[in-house]
Design a protein around this nucleic acid. Sequence first.
DNA 1: CAGATCACCTGCTTGC
DNA 2: TGCAAGCAGGTGATCT
Length: 263
Amino acid sequence: MPELPEVETVVRSLVPHLPGRKILSAEFGSKHVTPGNRGALAGKLAGRTIRAVTRRGKHIVIGLDEGTLVVHLGMTGQLLLDATPKNHAYGIFHLDTGMLVYRDPRQFGSIAWHADLAKLFAKLGPEPLSVTVEEFAARLKKHKMRIKALLLNQSFVAGVGNIYADEILYAAKVHPLAMASKLSKPRVALIHQAMREILTMAIEHGGSSISDYVDAAGERGWFQILHNAYGREGEPCLRCGGAIKKILVAQRGTHFCPGCQKR
DNA sequence: CAGATCACCTGCTTGC
DNA sequence: TGCAAGCAGGTGATCT
C-alpha cells in the first residue's frame, strides 16, 4: 500500500489529533512487526507524551517526550485512530483519550522505538519533494542501474515505490530499463519534475487505494483513478493509444508504454 | 557495485 | 465448486 503520498496522508490525518496525547499503555502481537522483546517496547512507551507526527521517506515518525516511535507500514499496514481492533491488529496504543490501532495482515511493516533517529535514517536518500534538480542529476550519474530500480532504491530517494515509479517514468516518457547514469540532462529534468508533480498530486488526492490502503480515519485515497500506467496492462496509452505493457524490472511488476517511453 | 533470487506473511484472483 | 498457483503498495539477506 504505502508509498510517500499514502504515508504523508496518514501523517496528515494524525497531526490534528495525536500531539499532546499520552500513551497510557501499549500491546503488540506480532514477532514480525515488533521483533525482539515486545514487553520491553510496551514499557518504553507507557507514560510517554506524543509531541509531533512527521514523515521521513515511507516512515511515520512519532516524536515522544523521550525518544521516537517509528512506524513503517510495509505493504498492508494501517494506522487507525479510534478504530475497533479487528483481525490483524498487531499494535494497540491506549491513549489518555481514545486509542491508536496498527493493523497489518501481511506483517511486513514495523513498529520500533528509537533513541537515535540519525542512525536509523543514515542510509536514506533525500526527500523527493525537496531534492533539487542539480542534486538529483548528480546522484543519478553515480549509479549504473536501471532508472526504475534506482527510483525504488530508498538510499537514492526516500519514498518512491512501485506505483509512483511507474507513473513518474510514464509522465517523463522515459523507459524503465534506461540506464540512470546515461540519461541526458533534459530527460533527468523531466523525471525530476514528474516526480514532484506526481507525488504532489497524489498527496492532494489522499494517495492511491488499490486494495486496502486507508488513512488514520479509515478514508480511502483517490489517486488510483488518475493512474496512467500502473495496473493498466493491455489498456490503451492515454497519449498514443498503444497498449500499456507489463514487464519485470528489479523483480517488480513494471508498467509502461513502449510507444512513448524511450530508452 | 549491480542485480538476481529468495524470504518474510496473508489474502485475493486466476486458471485448470 | 475446489484447489493450486500466482500475484500484491516493501525491504533485507545472500549469492553471483
